[in-house]
Amino acid sequence: MLQKVGQFFGCVNCKRSLVFRTEQANCVICTNCRALNYRLSIPEKEAPVTEKVKEEMSVIRVGTTGTFREIKFEVVGRYQYLFKDGYRNHWQIVFSDGRESWLGDWAGNYSIFQAHNNTVAETFANAVPGKKVEINKISFELEMLDEHRLTLAEGEVNDLVLGLKGFISLFFINPSGAMALVNIYPQKKADAPKGVYQTPRIEIFTGNYVEFSSLNLQNTRNYDDWR
């Protein structure tokens, strides 16, 4: 059965009403039972259940709305990346004009960014903090690199992402407020000798840091004690 965008359906496991808001996600995680409800699913087959996201004091949640450059958006899902030295939330947002994007949220930093795929992996060779690289014709400086530990998710996601582990994540900044994130996934052939890897697969996001207040977030978790 194929679930269409905007069409409500019952969770395979607990029958809670769910809906796909985006085209990209291949599944939506039930808020009640954590079941992965795939867009294309086999009726009556029990769905796998995922781990809950960790509490890290984010005020954003699935269903939070806001505006970016005067266009309304709604949060429909998130990946919660836990790294060796930090964490990062990638909230999937859908704009009122149908575009999809990411709302970054970690340690008081907020950003809006999109996937970008025109940069070769060699750009990031020998990356050390302070190194300058050009991504999407913008000069960035490496602020931080971190090692992935765990990915959790909620709402609309792509379950393939949940299976990607052990990547290196690079954080780039530009004084203008532009930011970039690069995830480098080492790939190894099944029959390759020990220590021999193929050219790593990279995943790149570029965007801009934004002020929390400028997002005009509504339907957040209540944080009155922290205002």
């Binding site: 005020v59 302070g130 190194k131 400086e141 922290w226």
Partner: peptide, 29 residues
């Protein structure tokens, strides 16, 4: 602060500084 993130108060010889991270300046290495 869960919304604003982290800040730091540093004290040396009774003198205090309030620090917050910035992202709009760097001269790299």
């Amino acid at each position: 602060n869960p919304v604003q993130g982290y800040a730091y108060l540093s004290e040396f010889n009774g003198h205090w500084n309030f620090f917050q991270p910035i992202y709009d300046y760097s001269h790299g290495n």
